[in-house]
Design a protein around this nucleic acid. Structure first.
Length: 284
DNA sequence: TGATATGTTATCTT
DNA sequence: CAAGATAACATATC
């Protein structure tokens, strides 16, 4: 879930809800997840939000920024005056201020931002705004898939002999692409996930490039995929999990009519330790 | 009980 | 040294 569309959704909603709020105090319940000195952000006002790959950045008016990566199960949930409805998905693990709530940002005017994370893989860091782009993780990121040109994409693809699926998910090569959307994009472009990157033709690379943009835009339109733990900062779920093309569809028919006619079933196997879905009829 | 889970990284291997 | 492969991180759920 937290791939480019999910993180972009987090960025947009946090921007909408937090801008103008002042941070009054921060309760840190887990020191591994919250790295840095929370006192540096007290009394600071939120200016805006940015995204680098799967990292969200919250910029403050005192020259500091909050950087965060939600990894697999991190959740940001806002409650307060900028919210229209206070609905809360039951996917919010442990509820608000529950056993999995690791950080609570108390804001002015009665606003609160909760960070929940069941598996505690995610992190929140405090950095000077001027240092954000030199932060170790962000510095290593490849160009963001949403702004990458076809020409640059082709160069990146042709550089590796690994299978195309694992290569596309390498954040140091391209920022933002994860397992759900790469599976769907390779199905849409009719390319076998096992194909060695550098053996792909210019035509095939163009198909993958267009397919990736198509599925990422679909993910954005649906507010992300919530089939596991992802929830949006307004406390709701995304809908992309109900619209996947091949992800999660093992043993079901391929959605391509010709393959369905032939009785083909989606196969699941592992590539780079991650679940990979493949129709052996149409994905060559 | 064992397999699996959207991400990243440290640590081998090649 | 670099690229690639694999296990590990912590915990819940099926």
């Amino acid at each position: 879930m937290p791939e480019l569309p999910e993180v972009e959704t987090i960025k947009l909603q946090l921007g909408k809800f937090l801008v103008g709020h002042k941070i009054v105090y921060v309760e840190v319940k887990n020191r591994r997840v919250f790295q840095g000195d929370e006192n540096k952000i007290i009394n600071a006002k939120v200016l805006g939000t940015r995204r680098f790959g799967k990292v969200t950045v919250i910029d403050l008016d005192n020259k500091y920024s909050i950087l965060t990566h939600v990894k697999l199960t991190g959740q940001f949930i806002y409650r307060g005056p900028n919210l229209k409805t206070e609905s809360l998905s039951n996917k919010v693990t442990g509820g608000l201020n529950g056993p999995h709530t690791l950080v609570i940002f108390n804001l002015d005017r009665g606003g609160v931002l909760y960070y929940n994370d069941v598996r505690r893989f995610g992190w929140i860091r405090i950095e000077k705004t001027i240092d954000v782009e030199n932060e170790s993780f962000i510095k290593k990121l490849g160009p963001d898939m949403l702004v990458l040109s076809l020409k640059d994409f082709e160069k990146i693809v042709l550089k590796s002999s690994r299978n195309i699926k694992v290569h596309l998910m390498d954040q140091t090569k391209i920022g933002g692409v994860g397992n759900i959307y790469v599976n769907d994009a390779l199905w849409l472009s009719k390319i076998n996930p096992k194909r060695a990157s550098k053996t792909l033709s210019t035509e095939e690379i163009k198909l993958i490039f267009n397919a990736l943009n198509t599925v990422l835009q679909a993910g954005l339109k649906y507010g992300g995929a919530s089939e596991l733990a992802f929830v949006t900062p307004d406390g709701k779920e995304g809908e992309y999990q109900n619209h996947t093309l091949i992800y999660g569809r093992q043993n079901k028919s391929c959605q391509n009519p010709a393959c369905r006619q032939a009785g083909a079933k989606i196969e699941k196997f592992f590539l780079g330790g991650r679940g990979t879905y493949w129709c052996k009829i149409c994905q060559k």
